[in-house]
C-alpha cells in the first residue's frame, strides 16, 4: 500500500469525523448529539486499526479493543440517563 493511498483513506475518515462533529454542534436535541458520538466511535475504531497498520505495531490493536469497549459503556450510561429524564 503506497503513501498516496494511505493519505486518501485518512482524508476520507477525517472528513467523515468532521461531518459528524458538525451534526454534534447543530443537533437540536441531546439524542442527536449522542447519535453523532456513537457514529464517531465506530469510525475511530476503524481508524485506530488502520493507523496500527501504518505504524506497523501489533500492540496498537489492543488499544482499539479497549476503546470500543469503554466508549460502549459510556454511551449506555448516557442513554440510561436520557431514558429516566428529569
Amino acid at each position: 500500500m503506497s503513501g498516496t493511498i494511505i493519505f486518501i483513506y485518512l482524508a476520507f475518515i477525517g472528513a467523515g469525523i468532521f461531518l459528524c462533529l458538525l451534526r454534534m454542534l447543530k443537533g437540536p436535541t441531546a439524542s442527536d448529539r449522542a447519535v453523532a458520538v456513537d457514529t464517531i466511535t465506530t469510525t475511530v475504531v476503524a481508524l485506530l486499526v488502520f493507523l496500527g497498520f501504518v505504524f506497523k505495531r501489533y500492540v496498537y490493536l489492543d488499544v482499539a479493543l479497549v476503546y470500543s469497549l469503554l466508549a460502549f459503556v459510556g454511551l449506555v450510561a448516557i442513554a440510561r440517563f436520557l431514558e429516566k429524564g428529569i
Binding site: 454534534m24 441531546a30 449522542a34 464517531i40 481508524l47 489492543d62 448516557i78
Partner: peptide, 28 residues
C-alpha cells in the same frame, strides 16, 4: 447533558492524539 456529551468527545479525540504520538498506554 449536551455539554457532557461534548466533553466525552473531547477526551475521545485526545486519546487519538496520544495514539498519534506513539503512546498507546496513555491512550488506553
Amino acid at each position: 447533558m449536551s455539554a457532557v456529551i461534548a466533553a466525552c468527545m473531547v477526551s475521545l479525540i485526545a486519546s487519538i492524539l496520544f495514539y498519534f504520538l506513539q503512546a498507546p498506554d496513555v491512550a488506553m
